[in-house]
Design a binder for these strands. Structure first.
Length: 740
DNA sequence: CACAGGTCTCTTTTT
DNA sequence: GAGACCTGTG
């Protein structure tokens, strides 16, 4: 242990040895915070005699939890397996599985994923006769989710509506949504936290038991916790006050999901006698990369001042590369990876391609396949969200919990049994009238009037389910799944629905994969059972755990948080893509700051090499768009960034566009790109044919008044207040506004 | 009453 | 480009 402590710097050591009382660790990117957490656990156990059983470490993602688990196990010799390393959500599930009956649910509740949530909201809105034109499902759903993050109940939400019509309507949806979930004995992701808090608040004995168990609590990525999560850990830690949270306000990137930055800023007020320790030495990146990161993040106004420094070498300048389009970008990056692998002692697994949106992954995937580069994509279409997997899961869920209406209805006519929408709505009506679940209504199918010949089909279905149910008590999980696939002739069904034989084969492979996952679960579990398996599946967001194989990592910037790579590519550095169009046009300036933090996260993933790239033309949602170089790129000092000859050429062309007659201004320069010089010479505003105050017409938005024209480099950003569409910001070249 | 094919919309990030 | 939704046909 002494040995272990020696490897830490002074601040880190301080943090490790501060074991009693609340501790706030402000840890910059790459400052070794995970290292500190793990050493702290080791110190608690080996030096302070703390029982590992009393330690709880909470992370944000499964990936992070898995990684921490691994590192904990490798450093701590005895008892590491008793430390509870978990995400917020899986912690709550484990607690609720034991005690949720105390607050009126059954312990075998199901967990609804976002598809399920959407479905429920849709039905609720239909039932309440709310036009989706006025309030979109997405909007209602995110409002509900925000409310839960803030621990606002449906009643409170409705009460606070006042004169706000929209809020009142959403309140009604929220209330109905919640009672629907209750009826189905289901919880959504947010409920997992909310209901655990409810359980603790109403059952002092349960809370006390967990307070006694978790005497030492550590929370990683604390900047991303929301109000509910903070409430939860506050409750748990309130007795012993041994709470250590680690975070970095510059890496807060989940505001859209309810993350509350005040949790960091106000921590010291909530927990008195908090010790604050800052970790500012970066061990990960070269000086150059760190300078780039600092140059970008300093443009944010809402942040705690920090001085991140490193003893690492300066390193190579980062590179900026331009491409004509997204395909060229992918090919160019693929070639660059190949050359780095062959020349620079870099492995494929040292490389990561990070993008803003999942949709960008596809181009890279295709390119990598062509170039024979091993790769692995994280996130995106989750394995467990694939149709065939969701179908089989729905069978398992129905067998496990017949209250789960959504699951039942998903498979009622899958494979096709000739049970159509009309029959389903008859059953639903009956279920609502009698206040019973969908499945129970089906059991009474004979009492449902006008259901006609469909009744026999329904009975056949419920008979099949109950026979699966009795089989499930004697069969292994693996055999049950195989039995379901065979009995329902599911493979034949796949052949029916897929035009393409390859698609069917892929789906079959996925089913095989699913079966092996079931086997893996059964082999690993102490007491394997269907409910627990379903719960594990529900909480796994992606096919986690980077296994050892040598492959390039492809993921969104969001999922990259907490990871590090020798060689990083930040691709699609274009205004409108990153920062996203939404954040540029938002009237809330903190949205753009969140994007910038995301950029900061991306940059600081790189240890040695960092490449930024952008495409001048890109296919986005079926349309060709021309985007400017990301404003974040322009925040990087030129002396830190190298652009190769191809990039220089295309950039020169790029910036020349507004004034075609001018000589190439970039040509005279060194290899560094001089943005400011170039940007000072755009087309004259007069060439637009309109000015601030003019009335203009837009093809889609109609008539409006120009309120602002901003010189954005090679194009103008025009703000127009439209009579019907409201205020919009757009690029002059594409807006094609006509003066009236 | 079920199903197939055509039309429409909507796009960020995730446990 | 993909998915949800609607409409016409068998």
């Amino acid at each position: 242990m002494d040995n272990l402590l020696e490897k830490l710097n002074e601040q880190q050591r301080k943090a490790v040895m501060h074991t009693e009382g609340p501790l706030l660790l402000l840890a910059g990117a790459g400052s070794g915070k995970t290292r500190v957490l793990i050493h702290r656990m080791a110190y608690l156990i080996e030096e302070c005699g703390v029982n590992p059983y009393n330690i709880l470490a909470i992370t944000f993602t499964n990936k992070a939890a898995g990684e921490m688990r691994e590192r904990v196990d490798s450093i701590i010799e005895v008892g590491s397996e008793s430390i509870w390393v978990s995400t917020f959500h899986s912690l709550c599930v484990r607690i609720l599985r034991r005690y949720i009956d105390r607050i009126g649910y059954e312990n075998n509740f199901t967990i609804y994923d976002s598809d399920d949530q959407k479905q429920v909201v849709k039905e609720v809105m239909k039932r309440l006769d709310i036009d989706t034109k006025f309030i979109k499902e997405r909007r209602a759903l995110s409002a509900i989710s925000r409310a839960k993050d803030e621990l606002i109940t449906p009643e409170e939400y409705c009460a606070s509506a006042g004169n706000d019509r929209e809020r009142a309507v959403i309140g009604r949806i929220y209330r109905e949504y919640q009672s629907q979930l209750k009826k189905c004995n289901a919880l959504d992701f947010d409920d997992l936290i909310v209901k655990t808090i409810e359980l603790f608040k109403t059952n002092a004995d349960v809370l006390n038991a967990y307070q006694e168990r978790f005497k030492y609590i550590m929370v990683d990525e604390y900047q991303d916790t929301n109000t509910a999560q903070f409430g939860l850990i506050s409750l748990l830690a309130s007795k012993y006050q041994n709470l250590c949270v680690v975070g970095d306000d510059d890496q807060s990137i989940y505001k859209f999901r309810g993350a509350n930055i005040n949790n960091i800023l106000q921590f010291e007020q909530v927990f008195e006698d908090t010790t604050v320790i800052k970790l500012e030495q970066n061990y990960r990146s070269t000086q150059n990369i760190l300078d780039v990161a600092n140059a970008v993040i300093k443009n944010n106004t809402y942040r705690k001042e920090k001085a991140l420094w490193t003893e690492n070498k300066e390193g190579e300048p980062i590179s900026l590369r331009s491409f004509d389009n997204g395909f060229d970008e992918a090919n160019g990056i693929a070639r660059d990876i190949k050359s780095k692998v062959s020349v620079k002692n870099i492995k494929y697994s040292d490389c990561a391609v990070l993008y803003r949106t999942n949709a960008q992954s596809r181009t890279f995937e295709e390119s990598f396949i062509r170039e024979n580069i091993p790769y692995r994509i994280f996130g995106g279409i989750n394995f467990y969200q694939r149709r065939e997997i969701k179908d089989i899961l729905a069978y398992l869920k129905t067998i496990d919990n017949a209250h789960d209406d959504l699951a039942v209805r998903r498979i009622l006519n899958v494979p096709k049994r000739g049970i159509g929408a009309a029959t389903v709505s008859r059953i639903m009506e009956y279920a609502v009238e009698n206040d019973i679940t969908f499945y129970n209504a089906m059991l009474h199918v004979k009492d449902i009037p006008s259901i006609g010949k469909a009744a026999a089909k329904i009975e056949a279905f419920t008979y099949m389910i109950s026979s699966f149910r009795s089989k499930s008590t004697v069969m292994s999980l693996k055999d049950l799944v195989i039995d379901i696939i065979n009995e329902t002739k599911y493979i034949d069904y796949l052949k029916e629905i897929d035009e393409d034989e390859d698609d069917t084969n892929e789906r079959e492979q996925n089913l095989d994969e699913f079966i092996s996952k079931a086997v893996t679960y059964e082999d690993g579990a102490e007491n394997p059972n269907l409910s627990e398996f379903l719960e594990e599946v529900a909480l796994i967001a992606d096919i986690d755990s980077m296994d050892g194989s040598d492959a390039v990592t492809l993921m969104t910037l969001h999922s990259a948080k907490g990871l590090e790579f020798e060689n990083v590519y930040l691709v699609g550095m274009e205004d409108g893509l990153f920062p996203s169009y939404m954040s540029i046009t938002s009237d809330d300036s903190t949205d753009l700051e969140e994007e910038r933090r995301l950029c900061y996260v991306g940059i600081t993933r790189a240890k040695k090499y960092l490449t930024l790239s952008h495409a001048r033309m890109r296919m986005m949602r079926g349309e060709t768009t021309y985007n400017k170089v990301s404003r974040f790129v322009k925040e990087i000092p030129v002396e830190l960034m190298f652009s190769d000859s191809g990039a220089r050429k295309s950039l020169a062309r790029d910036f020349e566009m507004p004034s075609p007659k001018r000589e190439n201004p970039v040509k005279k320069r060194t290899s560094y790109v001089m943005y400011d010089t170039v940007f000072d010479k755009p087309a004259s505003a007069g060439s637009l044919g309109y000015a601030v105050g003019d009335t203009v017409k837009h093809v889609k938005f109609g008539v409006g008044t120009v309120t602002d024209i901003v010189n954005g480099g090679r194009d103008y950003e025009v703000t127009v207040d439209f009579e019907t569409a409201g205020v919009k910001k757009m690029f002059a070249t594409f807006a094609k506004l006509v003066k009236m």
